[in-house]
């Protein structure tokens, strides 16, 4: 009886201890003797606590063992245990993020090239992976709260600024904008029509240019064929002779033009003198002027001319009266 009772007590004790030990190990995720330790440094860990899951590509590969601030206080060191067969990428990093919206966080191993966040902490110690933590919901809530407050301020200012008069002005402005829009629409329509005409003209011009180009091409081809033919040398020789004749003719014309220019200059001089003479006559200077300006002198001149004519007639009729001819 005594033995049986002792055995029963022993059984219950062992059973209780076994339940406690095995249950603890099982709830921890199994025996973790063969796990490999990983460390990652982050600026903060958010809501991450010991026991949180460590994931790689979405698969649970270990657990967070401890979270502690570094001795210098510049970072937080996350100690993790992961499966030894896990092949980490060369640029492995650890991102701490909420596993769900209910406060449970996880540490996710990833490649820096997959998610190049600017705030990964690069801790200056070998074997420590760079880490980063996403903002937790409290920070997001705080940011949302700040945004809400800013919106409230804007709303209040809008309420202050948006009076009935502002509304009327705004309505008027909108109507004006409508009118302007209609005008612009009309202008655009007109310009579009013009552009259509212009484009048609451009098209026609382009067609004509195309035709001209074809003609030119044909002409050039013909010229090429002529140049390439046997009589081209003779034609070129004739053309050279014609050009030589034209050149000599041009030289003669140039000399004639030079003579003409000299004659013109002399004529100009003559005309200038004649102008001076006329001017002197008009002013009464000189013999001609006095002659033209003094009627008595003119009459005298006429009489002198008449007497001269009479003298000439008398000389012609009676030469011996005026002339005597002897040899000795």
């Amino acid at each position: 009886m005594e033995r049986r009772r002792e055995a029963l007590v022993g059984l219950v004790v062992l059973l209780g201890i076994a339940v406690g030990v095995v249950g603890t190990i099982w709830l921890q995720g199994g025996l973790r003797r063969d796990m490999v330790e990983l460390r990652a440094a982050t600026a903060n860990v958010g809501q991450l606590v010991a026991g949180a899951a460590v994931r790689f590509r979405g698969v649970s590969v270990g657990r967070v063992d401890a979270v502690a601030v570094t001795p210098g206080g510049e970072a937080v060191m996350v100690h993790m245990s992961v499966r030894p067969e896990l092949a980490l990428p060369a640029d492995a990093a650890v991102l701490l993020a909420p596993e769900s919206v209910f406060g449970d966080w996880q540490a996710e191993i990833l490649s820096l090239t997959e998610l190049d966040l600017p705030y990964f902490v690069d801790y200056p110690e070998d074997g420590v992976l760079p880490g980063a933590a996403l903002p937790d919901f409290s920070r997001l809530t705080a940011t949302a709260d700040e945004i809400a407050r800013n919106l409230t301020v804007i709303s209040e200012r809008f309420q202050i600024a948006f009076t009935e008069q502002t509304a009327l002005q705004l309505r008027s402005a909108i109507e004006n904008i409508g009118e302007v829009s209609d005008g612009l629409s009309e202008i655009i329509t007109q310009q579009a029509a013009r552009f259509e005409d212009l484009s048609e003209g451009v098209n026609a011009s382009a067609a004509e240019l195309g035709a001209a180009a074809r003609v030119a091409r044909t002409s050039f081809e013909r010229i090429d064929s002529i140049i390439g033919s046997a009589g081209a040398g003779e034609m070129l020789g004739d053309a050279g002779a014609v050009l030589s004749n034209l050149r000599s003719l041009t030289d003669e014309l140039n000399s004639s033009l030079g003579d003409m220019r000299a004659a013109a200059r002399q004529a100009d001089t003559t005309f200038a003198r004649f102008d001076a003479l006329l001017a002197a006559a008009e002013t009464g200077d000189g013999s001609v002027g006095k002659l033209l300006g003094d009627p008595a002198l003119a009459d005298g001149a006429i009489e002198a001319v008449q007497e001269l004519r009479a003298l000439l007639a008398d000389i012609q009729e009676n030469p011996r009266r005026y002339l005597s001819f002897s040899i000795f």
């Binding site: 219950v12 004790v13 059973l15 209780g16 201890i17 339940v19 406690g20 249950g23």
Partner: peptide, 16 residues
């Protein structure tokens, strides 16, 4: 002192 933890551990396990 010795048996209460045993009973409690068994109770916890069975409760879960």
């Amino acid at each position: 002192i010795l048996m209460f933890p045993i009973v409690v551990l068994l109770a916890i396990a069975l409760g879960i």
